[in-house]
Amino acid sequence: MDTKKETNKKSTKFSAASQRNGISLVAAELLTRILEWELQDLKEAMPMVRVND
């Protein structure tokens, strides 16, 4: 019975760690897409910016 409890504890810890890793990956992907979007927006806006000489 102790072995079964230990197995359950390990799988719960693994599951929690996997969820944290999954959330981290989703957050990283979201931030990457936001930065790419902002970069594209900036590139599109640059021709409109005039530099006074």
Rank of each mutant, 00 (worst) to 15 (best):
V49W: 04
S24M: 06
M46I: 08
S18C: 08
N52F: 05
R20M: 07
A16W: 02
D2P: 02
E6Y: 04
N21Y: 03
A27V: 06
L31Y: 05
K43Q: 15
F14R: 11
T3Q: 09
N21E: 08
A28Q: 10
K43S: 06
V49G: 00
R20T: 12
A17V: 00
D41F: 12
L30M: 10
R50T: 07
G22Y: 11
V49C: 01
E6G: 00
L39H: 06
V49L: 13
E29L: 10
S24Y: 04
T12P: 00
E38L: 08
L25Q: 12
K13N: 15
L31Q: 09
T7P: 00
M48C: 08
N8Q: 12
V49S: 00
D41T: 03
W37C: 02
D41N: 04
T32Q: 09
K13M: 11
L35V: 01
E36G: 03
L35I: 02
R50M: 05
E36W: 03
G22A: 12
T3L: 10
K10A: 11
A17Y: 04
A17E: 14
A28C: 05
T3D: 10
S11G: 00
T12F: 04
K10E: 11
M1G: 13
A28L: 10
S18E: 08
A27D: 11
N21W: 06
L25N: 14
I23F: 10
R20K: 08
N52S: 05
L39I: 03
D2Q: 10
G22K: 12
M46N: 03
M46K: 12
D53F: 09
I23D: 10
K4Q: 05
R33S: 09
V26N: 14
V26Q: 15
N52E: 05
A28R: 14
K10N: 04
E29C: 01
V51S: 02
E6N: 06
L31I: 06
R50V: 07
R33G: 02
T12Y: 01
F14W: 07
L42F: 11
L39P: 00
M48Q: 13
A16V: 13
A16F: 06
L30G: 04
G22M: 05
T12M: 06
L31R: 15
V49Q: 03
R50D: 02
L30E: 06
A16Q: 14
E38D: 03
T32P: 00
